[in-house]
Structures are given as C-alpha cells and as structure tokens.
C-alpha cells in the first residue's frame, strides 16, 4: 500500500441509506393521502430487488453480501415503486423491478456501470407493456368514493379481487397531469379543469404534498452533500421557465409554472432520479446541461406526448447524452485557465 494512508469514514452504503431516509417523508405523505397501498408496493419491490440482485451477483460470481448491503438495489426498488401507480398488480411490480435490476443494471456490469437509470428503465418497460394498469392511479382518499383497507388492497394486488359491489373507478382516477391533458383536448377551459376536486392549491390534491416532501428530502440531501445543487436547480428552473413561457403565451391552454413544479414527478425527478450519479454527468457544467435538457424534454413530453408524465423518458434520453456531455464540459485544470 502506498499513500494516502487515511480515508474519510464514508461508504456507498451510507450514501444510499441517506437517500432512502430522504424519501421517507414522501412515502409517509403518499400513505397519508392515498392509503396504505404504496407501502405494499414498496415492500414487494424491495423483496424482488434484493432477490434478483442476489441471484445476479451469484450468476456473475461477485461477492453477494457486500453488494447486497450497498443499498443500491433497494434504492432502485423504492424509486420504481414510487413512480408507478401504488395499487398495481403484484406481477407488474415484480416484472418492472426484476427488469430494472437484472437487465438494466447487471447486464451492463452492475453497480456503477449502467448507462441508464435502472428505475426509469423499469418504468418505461411497464408503461409500454401495461398501459392500462400503469394509468390506474389511486384517487386521493378525500376525493375517492370509497376507501380500501390494507387487507382489501392486498386482495386486489395479489388476487385482483375488489370488495363486493365495488367498482375500480370508485378508488382510482387519472393523474392531475393526465386529466389536464385529456380535458384540454375536450376543449374545456383550464380554470374549470383546475377546479375539479382532484386538484389542490398548486398541483394535485395530495400529490402536491408529496412534492413538498420530496423537496424537503432533497434539501436534506443537499445539506448532507450527497447531491450537488446543479441538477435540481437546473431541472426545476428549466421546467419553470418553459412552462412559464407557454403559460404567458397562451394561458388558456397551458397550466402555470407552479402547477408543473408541484405535479407529477418533477420533485422526485429533480432530487432523486436525475441526481443518480452513475447515470448522470460528473462535471458541474455538464450537470447543468443535463438537467436543463431533462427539464425541457419533461415539459414537452408532458404537454405534447402520449404519456402521463415525461420525467422517465426525459431522464433516459438525457442518459444517452451523458458521455458526450462529460467529454465536452471538462473544466480547465489548475494553471491552464484562461
């Protein structure tokens, strides 16, 4: 061994653990406003992720325990679980998680080597393969006609059974972003749409509180120096700017910037998805470029695309650009600055 002989007491597991902790407020908000289904989804995704991770490590002849303990599989599972409808069928959750871990992480070389965000690959696979199940989001409990207890949620997720006489429509609804898009297509005025019961003060009812919780978690990660400011600031600023421009130009057909910040996956994207170090750029300038691109793409996909939200595809499209961005944004080295 040669110098240095000292190292800071930090580890990959510690980083992942802090990110997981930072997600807890949003999970709590989710459970509070939309019922216990999300907890079941997270548990199922976590178990699947750990099993598939262990299996893949075994197949690749890698030490199982140290890599299982690094927490990265768990983080992928949580991100995916929070990106899909909370009461999806069990097989959908298992398929998405298994694909994320086995294909988009381990087939590319495992931790640190995957070019695409595994959770977002899992999401993309699911929304393309199972569009119906992937758009059945739970309505906020304060709006829904019926509530499901934990037992009833499990019955539905594992056996596709709803309580006698209950219709799925009684508990689900389209997301606020989706509703806005379809209602605008039906030429309803935007003011009227946003006064529908699923909307809250800024975004969707409940959803806006989750966004606030993600923001709080993200600020914790910034304070802990797990993430840097460039990605969240550039991402949120670009969404704000582009939605603001569209809103100024045509406020009858475009919701305002605050709606876009508080809706969909803007906040989880800004602080938890796009900040994934493995699949993002490493240079400060590169991070700004990457997140700005992702913000613009997110808005365009949301507004003009066929999918309910744009964060996942925006992330994957920008992931492709990362090697190029990194290569062209190398900061000048010491003594060679202009």
């Amino acid at each position: 061994m040669s110098s240095p002989y000292l190292s800071q007491p930090s580890s990959v597991s510690m980083i992942m653990l802090k990110v997981l902790c930072a997600m807890i407020p949003a999970i709590a908000a989710d459970a509070w406003f939309f019922g216990p289904a999300v907890l079941v989804t997270i548990c199922l995704a976590s178990i699947t992720a750990l099993c598939v991770e262990a299996l893949m490590l075994q197949l690749r002849n890698r030490p199982v325990l140290p890599f299982l303990m690094d927490g990265s599989a768990l983080l992928t599972a949580w991100l995916l679980a929070l990106s899909i409808p909370p009461m999806g069928p069990w097989w959908m959750i298992v398929t998405g998680t298994a694909f994320a871990i086995a294909i988009s992480k381990h087939l590319y070389g495992g931790l640190g080597n995957n070019p695409f965000n595994p959770a977002m690959v899992g999401y993309a696979v699911l929304i393309i393969s199972f569009p119906v199940q992937m758009t059945q989001w739970l309505a906020p409990e304060s709006v829904a006609q019926a509530h499901l207890g934990l037992g009833e949620v499990l019955d539905y997720m594992f056996f596709h059974i709803l309580p006698q006489g209950m219709n799925l429509d009684a508990v689900t609804s389209a997301t606020p972003l989706d509703t806005l898009k379809t209602q605008l297509h039906m030429e309803r005025p935007i003011g009227e749409i946003l006064s529908m019961p699923i909307y809250g003060a800024m975004g969707g009812k409940g959803g806006e509180w989750m966004a606030a919780a993600y923001l709080a978690g993200g600020l914790y990660l910034l304070q802990q120096r797990i993430i840097t400011w460039q990605v969240p600031v550039a991402f949120l600023a670009s969404i704000f700017a582009i939605s603001g421009l569209f809103h100024l130009a045509d406020s009858a057909h475009h919701a305002g910037p605050f709606f876009h910040l508080a809706s969909g996956a803007s906040m989880i994207g800004a602080f938890f998805i796009l900040t994934d170090p493995v699949t993002g750029p490493t240079t400060p300038k590169g991070k700004l470029l990457f997140a700005t691109g992702a913000g613009i793409l997110t808005y365009l996909i949301r507004t003009y695309g066929n999918y309910p939200d744009g964060v996942a595809f925006a992330t994957l499209l920008m992931n492709i650009c990362v090697p190029l961005i990194d290569a062209y944004t190398q900061p000048p080295v010491f003594g060679k600055k202009k």
Binding site: V12, I15, G112, T228, G280, T282, P332, V333, F334
Partner: peptide
C-alpha cells in the same frame, strides 16, 4: 467498491482534474 461517479474526488482535487 465500484466507482459510482459521485464526483467527490473531482470536487476535492486541488489540480482541478
């Protein structure tokens, strides 16, 4: 462990590498 590209090394490098 594998490099997760967290960039702490770049942030700490006095030669801006």
């Amino acid at each position: 462990m594998p490099c997760i590209r967290c960039g702490r090394c770049a942030a700490s490098c006095p030669a801006d590498l």
